[in-house]
Simulated assay, not measured.
Amino acid sequence: MLSDLANLIEQDHLALDAFVKGNPEPLKSLFSQRDDVVIANPFGPPAKGWKKAAETMDRAATNYRDGEIIGFDRISEYATTDLGYIIEIERVRSKVGGSDKLVPISLRTTTIFRREKGAWKIVLRHADPITSPRPAASIVGE
């Protein structure tokens, strides 16, 4: 059972490679389509429910072009027979927005997986650019 989760994590990493090339479909195919699915990315507020999550992934993928995965630094992982998570630093290079320059991007990510009808699915993905210490003032809104 947990080897199935390891396979899904590998598929997730391959799907992220497509994502930074501008293609959200492989990643979307790994997500639960239930009402409690959540995606939280650096481009906007969290989206809950499959319809909003899918729209958010579509919109986020339009920010990337010609990207590639550099690597994944696993910080933590845990799994039971029906629920699991990974925390990683994802490192990619991509063209972002209107830029024609490949730039390095590092994201702190948390991904939660759930077994649904015998198959593992992603139920939450949170990604943000906080990968190093920041001053307390950095959390104060404008």
Score class of each variant (00 low, 15 high):
residue 58 D to S: 10
residue 78 Y to P: 12
residue 65 R to M: 05
residue 107 L to M: 07
residue 38 V to E: 14
residue 38 V to H: 08
residue 31 F to V: 06
residue 66 D to T: 11
residue 106 S to G: 09
residue 75 I to L: 06
residue 96 V to H: 04
residue 97 G to W: 00
residue 85 Y to L: 13
residue 83 L to N: 14
residue 126 H to I: 13
residue 35 D to R: 13
residue 48 K to Y: 13
residue 117 K to Q: 14
residue 33 Q to D: 10
residue 92 V to L: 11
residue 74 R to F: 12
residue 58 D to C: 03
residue 83 L to R: 15
residue 118 G to I: 04
residue 22 G to D: 02
residue 14 L to V: 02
residue 124 L to S: 13
residue 20 V to E: 00
residue 75 I to H: 00
residue 102 L to W: 03
residue 104 P to K: 15
residue 41 N to Q: 12
residue 73 D to M: 01
residue 75 I to C: 00
residue 16 L to R: 01
residue 49 G to Q: 05
residue 28 K to F: 06
residue 84 G to I: 04
residue 102 L to H: 04
residue 120 W to Y: 04
residue 79 A to T: 00
residue 76 S to Y: 06
residue 31 F to A: 11
residue 86 I to E: 12
residue 20 V to G: 00
residue 95 K to S: 07
residue 83 L to E: 15
residue 32 S to L: 04
residue 94 S to H: 07
residue 100 D to H: 14
residue 32 S to H: 02
residue 44 G to S: 00
residue 74 R to Y: 11
residue 62 T to K: 09
residue 116 E to G: 10
residue 116 E to Q: 14
residue 67 G to M: 05
residue 120 W to C: 00
residue 61 A to E: 08
residue 43 F to W: 06
residue 46 P to D: 10
residue 42 P to Y: 07
residue 12 D to A: 07
residue 12 D to G: 01
residue 44 G to R: 01
residue 104 P to R: 13
residue 25 E to R: 03
residue 61 A to I: 04
residue 84 G to T: 04
residue 82 D to K: 15
residue 84 G to R: 09
residue 37 V to Y: 05
residue 88 E to M: 07
residue 48 K to F: 14
residue 106 S to I: 01
residue 120 W to T: 06
residue 122 I to T: 09
residue 39 I to W: 12
residue 34 R to P: 08
residue 70 I to V: 15
residue 41 N to K: 00
residue 39 I to L: 10
residue 60 A to G: 03
residue 86 I to S: 10
